Amino acid sequence: MTYKNILIVKLSAIGDVIHALPVARALKQTYPDARITWVVEKPAYDLLTNNPDIDEIIIFDKPKFKSLTGLLSNGYTFSKLLKSHKFDLAIDLQGLFKSAAISYLSGAPKRLVYCNARELSDKIGQRICGNHEHGHVVDRYLDVAQHLGCKIDQVQFPMNITEVEVQKAEAIANHAGLRLENPYVVLAPGTNWPSKCWPTTHFAKLADQLYDNNMIPVIIGGPNDKRLAEEIIANTKIPPVDLIGKTSLKQLAHIIKKSQAFVGGDTGPMHLAVAVGTRVVTMFGPTDPNRNGPYGENHSILTPDVPCICCWKRQCIKTPMCLETLNPDLVYQSIYSKLEMKVGS
């Protein structure tokens, strides 16, 4: 069957949207004449712009739909917009009630959802179970593409960083004291779960070790990570470069792309590093790296030796928390083993 108008519903978060990018590439390669539209929430919108595999982006402004009044005043208009595209296929990669509702409101006669869908979303779309049901999220999404006849020769994360965004990123870095032609390592202390955060004191020690080996540590993250950056800086001999809250996602992607390595936990910027081809050293404890870890090879995944690993708990009541047991020396060695560089004394 040939599809002419395809809707992808993947709303958030940053890492999840990055995981779904290979689906757009696979669909466009298999159905080059198809028009592909993606519905996404505002925080991840920037990841999809200027993408040759995506013909249109529709923003789902979630705050407008949270109240009954908002739903009644905005629902009809949004549904009318979706139906005007005359989609013949809708792919719900979010697998939640809100994404299923969008898939349904699109009017597409064929609606697909992966078989691990929740919140009754599997009642609205056809459940697709492939060979990677218990594998990495990227491969699960691609199971849906393969169901549609897509041949996956190479998994690609298409992301177009324009020259304007490159220039802005370099200007921001220069203003903060970083020249991108110098060797540096990106540190991402923030995550959306407290249990996934590596201690700031560990990041501080790692930053000192990097400086001792002529490598500049650069802290990145959103505005909510400012406190973490301040704690790291307060515990270092030489303050790292602080880029917290100073870049857009595409600007951050360029800065990560130019770095020697990325260090952080299970967080969106870690998956951004994978997408732009940067080596990752990541610390996993409460979540499963087989499902959510950095996709592909040439990355280092460090996990603590504890019986409660992969507990999937946002908060940890144990002392010390599992990630605290991963000491900075181990992370430092992992960075340089991936870079195939001699570790300084």
Rank of each mutant, 00 (worst) to 15 (best):
N116I: 00
A275Y: 00
F78M: 08
G221P: 05
D153I: 04
H175I: 03
E165S: 12
H19I: 00
K338D: 08
Y336E: 04
P189G: 02
A44P: 03
P239F: 12
W312I: 01
V331F: 05
A207N: 06
T267R: 00
S248A: 02
T287K: 04
P286M: 05
A173H: 03
K10T: 07
W193T: 02
R25H: 15
T282W: 03
D122Q: 06
V218Y: 10
L82S: 05
G268M: 03
T325G: 09
N327E: 15
D153W: 01
T162L: 02
I317M: 13
V185Q: 08
E181W: 05
D33H: 13
Q315N: 09
G190L: 03
A101F: 09
D225K: 00
T325K: 14
M283F: 05
Q251F: 08
G177H: 02
F97C: 02
A20M: 07
N182H: 12
G107A: 11
Y76K: 14
Y332A: 08
L71P: 01
S103M: 04
S259A: 14
L47V: 02
A253I: 00
P307D: 14
Y31G: 02
I255H: 01
Y3K: 13
Q156E: 15
Q251W: 06
L81Q: 12
D208M: 11
H132E: 11
I18F: 04
G177W: 07
S84Q: 12
N182R: 07
E324N: 10
T2L: 11
H19G: 04
Y76C: 02
F60S: 12
C322H: 00
S12M: 05
V39E: 04
P194A: 03
D143E: 12
Q260K: 11
D143C: 11
R227D: 09
L21W: 12
D33I: 00
V186H: 00
L96Q: 03
A207S: 15
H175S: 13
G296D: 11
K110S: 14
P239C: 13
I317V: 09
I6F: 10
G95D: 14
Q126N: 12
A20W: 10
N327A: 12
D153K: 15
D122I: 14
T282G: 08
K80F: 08
K338Q: 15
L120Y: 15
I219R: 07
N51R: 06
E119M: 07
K205M: 13
L148Y: 02
D53L: 00
L11F: 01
V276D: 01
C322P: 10
G125Q: 04
D153S: 14
A204R: 10
P239D: 05
I255D: 01
V164W: 06
S300P: 03
I256Y: 07
R179C: 11
V39Q: 04
T319Q: 15
Q126D: 15
K226Q: 11
V306F: 06
S337F: 08
D33C: 05
H136D: 12
N224F: 04
I128Q: 01
P294F: 03
D122R: 08
V39S: 10
Q156L: 13
T201W: 13
F203M: 05
D16W: 10
N116Y: 12
V331E: 09
